[in-house]
Each structure stands twice: as C-alpha cells, then as structure tokens.
Design a protein around this nucleic acid. Structure first.
Length: 538
RNA sequence: GCCCCCGUAGCUCAGUGGAUAGAGCAUCGGUUUCCUAAACCGUGUGCGGCAGUUCGAUUCUGCCCGGGGGCACCA
C-alpha cells in the first residue's frame, strides 16, 4: 500500500538524518485539506527533539532526502506549517487503488487480517422472554450483527449469541399477568401492563391454568415472536442460550464452586457474597440471598464463564441502564482466572423514538410501545438497519419514524441506495448498447485524471483504513459514514463524467467502466458490512 | 454524593494531538437535447466554560455548567 511505502521511506530518511530508532508516533496520513498534498507526515515534528534541530529545518532535510530517494508515485515534496512534509502524488497511485479493488473484488478488497482467526463471542439483544422486542432492541440487533460482519471481514471468527433469561421472578410476573388477562381480570400489582398481554392471553389455550403452564407457554410464544422480528430484520444468532438450561447443566454450581475454592466468597448476614472489590468493583456483590435464592448475578457468572468455550474474547453489548453490571461481571470473571481484557462490555446509549414530533416511550410496562416488528414492517429492514447504524453507539439515538417512512432526500438511505442503482443502471445500459468491459490489462487507466474520478478513487482507497478503525473501535457507524461518502463521490462523478455517451472516446469509456466497477466493489463491501441490501434499480 | 455516555452550524450528527473543523437537512439561488434531477453546484453561523499537560488541545487531564442513564439480598 502506498502509505506503507511512504512511511518506510520516511523512517529510512529519519535514520539517515541521525534518528537511530524512529518513534512509532511517526505517521503518514491524508491531510484534512487537499492543498496540503495527498499525503503528509509529522516525522519532523516528532523527531526534532531527538535530533536537536527545529522541526522546519529537520523537515527540510527530510524533504531533501526524499527528493533524492523518491518513493513511488511521488511528484513533489514540500515542507509546510510547523514542519509537516507533504507529498504530492501522481494520479497513478489512485489507478493502482482501482486495480487493487477490482482485481480483489468484493470478496478480497479491504480484508485486513486483524484477528488471525481468533474467535470472538458477541452477545446482544438478550431480551427477557416476556414480551415482544420493541424498536429500541433494534439498535442492538443491527449493531451486534454489523459488528460480527466487521469482525468476520477482519479475520476474526465471530459467534453471535443471545441470552434468554427464562427463570427468575420476572417469569412469574409474566405468567401471572397472562393468566389474569386470560380470566379477564386486571394484572396483579407490578405486573406487565402492555396491550400485548391481553392479545397474547387471548391466544393462550384454555387448558393452561397454572402459573407454571402459563410460564412455559408464554415464554415459547414470546421467543417465537422475537425470532420473527429479528428474522424480518435479517438478524440471526448462532446460539440462543437459555439461563434455565445453563443452570440445569450445572454451569452455575461449577462456577460457584471454583469461586469458593479461589477464596473469593464469604458469608455475611446470612447471605453469600463475592468479593468483587478485589477486582475493581466498588462494593461486594451477593451471590446467594439470605432466603437461599440466587441473585441474577450468579447464573450469569456461570453463563459468561461458559461463553469462553465459544470465544477467546467475550463481548457483551448492553444498554446504558446496565453499565453498573460491567464491573461486577468483569470482577467475577477475573476471579475465575480470566485475564481482564478477555471480557469486554460495550455500553450503548438509548434509543429515542420520535413520532409526530413527540417522543414515544419504549417501556414494556407502559402502554404504547412501538414494536420492532412494526417499525420493520413500516420502513423495511434496510432502512431500519441503516438508521440504527448512522450514529456512534456512545450517543443516544433519535429515530424519527415519520422521516424514515419518507422516501425522499431527507432520508440518507436513499442517497446511498440511489448510488447503487445508478451503478447498476450503467451496467444495464452498457449491455443494451453492446458495450463490454475489456480486460483491465488492456485499459489505459492513465486517462482517469478528472477531479471527480480521482475523488471517487480516493474514497475507495480509504476503505481498508476505515474498516480497521471500525473494527478496533467497535464502530459500525464508521462504515455507514464511509458508504455515504462513497455515494457522494459517485454521484459527483456521474454528474460530471459521462460513461456511455457517444462523444466519450472508447478508451476513456473503458477506463470509466472500470472506475464504476471499483465503486461497485466498495459499495458492495460497505453495505454488506452494514447488513443493508441496496436495490439495483429504484 | 458516586459511576457511565453526551455537549461541535438553526436541526440531526461525523471528525481530529497538529497546518483555514466537516456532511446531510432546513434557507436562498443556479444546473437537465445526455447513462435515473431520488442528482450536482453555489450560499452563513459553530467545537458549553475555566485551568493544566504539550512545540501545538475542539481532541488528553482536572474542575465547573448543562442533558441522558445508572447506583438492590430486582433482573
């Protein structure tokens, strides 16, 4: 890659200038402003202290060295600002990017091996089996699924998992609520008030009369409902883990036993405690209540321990209301002997759903929830996923349902989908005209010199870096942002550069057809990472 | 009181230890005998505040202010 070639040259230059061991903080990057060249290095600023000269002088010396030992594609060098060395490259470096992209294709371009096949277990959604998924859950579904796609492309072996809390008090509450509604009675105090309970109770067979029967039937019904909603969004899990099954399999007992053997457990006030403060938690946590029942934490520890069988790295994707959970789970897993960095919790901020200009509450106990299935029905899985992935997971997400339903330029999804449709329209039109793309080797890419053409290739060239960063930062929204940039560059290109019109010379036409292909490769990869399908015509 | 996230343009959000901080929408104006105008081009205001670290801070650290979410022998 061009950047590595430039960086190598810069580092060699610094060695030649007396920096025995050039620091890693030397970078070659794309300057924010085009006037500052195609690439730029901070080497002189970083190394000036080591050499004892001022950055501008060192920069000049570096520029002189590079002038004499010119890396590929470099047209001109200049020193600027406080001591940056800027590279101006011939367009040939972008033509190389085109060749790389279309040769590797959607399966091979932008495929960094960061994970070296190590496995990563990603748990997300994990809703209680006591009701339907609401529109807020969609964020975790879209995020988790996209993150797994990113991991997979970056050389990891991801395992998508969701956890079903199918035991505990909320199940009894749920069963009680179902039975009460079945009998036409108001739900008990603290029960589930949602409209769906009435509806679901109506579907419950008459021979179900006991709480335990209602619980069994209700959980299965809820799970099926959730699976349908996720399937409509094209989200699938490798594993659905049942809390009850984990307890029955003895995962809880064996984890508890090992914690005791490790000396991390003590009794106090009739309860059994885990000394999580030894591993950074701010207070110890109860494992077994004084009434003999486990807290929610205890089976969760057993379950998390078990997840290491399905991942070298275990990641939980949790809502902001669970952030207090992280320190105790991390402490428990460390007490079981796992390295601190083998467990990672990603805390996502909440979803605010707007409809008719007002916020819609998403609480399951309140009446008017917007179901995930409703949202996906209304706008489709692609629009929904794109909307969920537009923002950083660290920010609360406002989703305006009215806006998503509008198929207009106010809705960014269509901008991207339209770019995809136009790319494919070129292909259709070319076929209609009997124009075929000739072998790449016979194509003169040197004809691609229009600013729009080069801008498009610049965006294509950035995908590998964007992907690495999206993976390292667990940030699918960086892919969304890149896809929007690519669409913008493509629309700009297509506006100013004709491909198939009569007056386009045949050799330029060929080069542009390959350019369109490189955009197709990039867009295909980007949209696939988001799990968003784009229609070939609109 | 403690913990987590956020505070960037009128709105919704990107972004970065660096050289003049971006995009979409909204406003106003312009572009089409031509591969989808669902497009393109032009048009202004902005890093909540105060210190510190640094050659350089919107970015890192501390404090303050503001918004959201947590602080159970609930899950």
């Amino acid at each position: 890659m061009i950047r590595d070639q430039l960086l190598d040259a810069v580092r060699q230059g610094m060695v030649a200038l007396g920096v025995a061991d050039p620091p890693d903080s030397i970078v070659v990057e794309r300057p924010a402003r085009r006037e500052h060249g195609d690439w730029s290095t901070n080497a002189a600023l970083v190394c000036s202290k080591i050499v004892g000269t001022n950055p501008r002088e060192l920069g000049q010396a570096l520029a002189d060295y590079l002038e004499a030992n010119r890396p590929p594609h470099v047209d001109a060098l200049e020193i600027a600002g406080p001591g940056f060395v800027n590279f101006r490259l011939a367009p040939t470096w972008l033509h190389d990017v085109l060749v790389e992209a279309v040769t590797a294709g959607p399966d091979g371009y932008a495929k960094p091996n960061l994970g070296d096949s190590s496995s990563v277990n990603v748990e997300f959604v994990s809703a209680n089996p006591t009701g339907p998924l609401h529109a807020g859950h969609g964020r975790w579904a879209a995020y988790g699924d996209s993150l797994c796609r990113i991991f997979a492309r970056c050389g990891y072996a991801p395992h998508a998992e969701t956890y079903v809390n199918d035991r505990g008090v909320q199940i009894n509450t749920y069963a009680g609520s179902l039975l009460a509604r079945k009998n036409g009675e108001p739900v008990p105090e603290g029960g589930y008030q949602g409209e769906y309970i009435i509806e679901w109770a109506g579907e419950m067979p008459d021979d179900i009369t006991t709480p335990s029967e209602a619980a069994g039937w209700g959980m299965e019904f809820a799970l099926n409902d959730q699976k349908e909603a996720l399937a409509a969004m094209h989200v699938a899990f490798d594993t659905w883990s049942s809390e009850r099954a984990a307890v029955d399999a003895g995962l809880l007992d064996s984890a508890l036993q090992r914690l005791k053997e490790g000396g991390h457990v003590y009794e106090d006030g009739g309860a059994t405690w885990l000394r999580t403060t030894d591993f950074g938690d701010d207070k110890d946590r109860v494992l077994i209540k004084s009434d003999g029942d486990y807290t929610y934490l205890t089976p969760d520890i057993g379950y998390h321990e078990n997840k290491f069988e399905r991942g070298d790295l275990v990641i939980d994707i949790l809502g902001a209301d669970h952030h207090g959970y992280v320190a105790r789970m991390s402490a428990a897993l460390q007490a079981l002997g796992h390295p601190k960095d083998a467990y990672e919790a990603i805390i996502g901020q909440n979803v605010k759903l707007m409809r008719d200009g007002a916020e819609v509450k998403l609480s399951k106990r309140a009446g008017d929830i917007v179901l995930l299935s409703e949202l996906v029905d209304e706008v489709g899985p692609d629009v929904a996923r794109f909307a969920y992935l537009m923002q950083s997971i660290d920010t609360s997400l406002k989703i305006d349902i009215d806006l998503l339903k509008k198929e207009s330029s106010e809705n960014p999804v269509f901008y991207v989908q339209y770019a995809n449709a136009r790319i494919h329209a070129i292909g259709r039109k070319a076929a209609e005209l009997g124009i075929e793309r000739q072998p790449l080797a016979d194509t003169d890419l040197g004809l691609l010199v229009h600013e729009r053409e080069l801008d498009l290739l610049r965006v294509v060239s950035e995908l590998p870096d964007v992907l690495e960063s999206a993976c390292a930062d667990r940030a699918p929204h960086k892919i969304t942002a890149w896809v929007r940039e690519l669409a913008a560059a493509y629309h700009g290109f297509q506006h100013d550069c004709y491909v198939l019109r009569d007056d386009v010379p045949a050799d330029l036409q060929q080069a542009r057809l390959w350019l369109v292909e490189s955009a197709r490769v990039g867009l295909t990869i980007g949209l696939d990472l988001l799990g968003v399908h784009a229609p070939e015509s609109m």
